[in-house]
Amino acid sequence: MTINQLSHVAMEMGVILLSNGAETYRVEESMHRICIALGAKEAEIFVVPTTIIISVTLEGEVPLTRTRRIHSRKIDLTKVSEINHLSRHICYEPTNYKDLLADIRRIDTIPSYPYYLHVLAFAFISQMFTLFFGGSFVDSCVGFMIGMGIKLQMDIMGRFEANVFFTNIVGGLIASTVAVAASGLGLTTNMDTIIIGSIMTLVPGLAITNSIRDIIAGDYLSGLAKGIEALLIGAAIAAGVAVPLSLLRPFWGG
């Protein structure tokens, strides 16, 4: 395998890992392991949540450095798991370049769950958490509607590439507007429960987990970046919820 092919394979696998929600230290570790297993003499890898830099040295050749900027990130843990399996596989038995590329392409095109299932999942999360925090069945149905609305809003705003914080502010705004309206119409008495239950859909669970795990692994830069992202998203949700609560309350008397 030439130095060009080797660095290409490692880079492609790293990009799939990083853009689908793997921890930063996992990306560095797997890329390093792949390079060594494929016959590199040295491999230096630097990863932050938006960039990958890799520098490979082969015996008797000039070192090669590649950089890739990650522009869009989404969450698809199936791909992370599959790439993890593939990198384990590479370490145990040798493969050739063509097979590896075909494997990577196959993993990159694994379909995620269908769209209607995602919308239903959001609605269900919101309903379950409303019940979890002590709401009645009617409350949970209001939560179901809000969850669906939040998912549709997130996708519409995602299509226009709105930033994460604005998306979350609008999500919180929808949740509290609908809940205040429902309590104003007399459908429910515990508006608080509905709002708490439906903002749980916006909670950045993966960012929290990954930031803690990155900090444990000694990757403070990425860990802090992700931790601050999680904190700011929390603040954005609270700000979005606050606006209708303070503006609409006098009118609806909720």
């Binding site: 199936t78 769950y113 999942a121 669970g205």
Partner: peptide, 8 residues
């Protein structure tokens, strides 16, 4: 439901 959202 969250497991579906994360594509596990």
């Amino acid at each position: 439901a969250f497991a579906f959202v994360f594509n596990i």
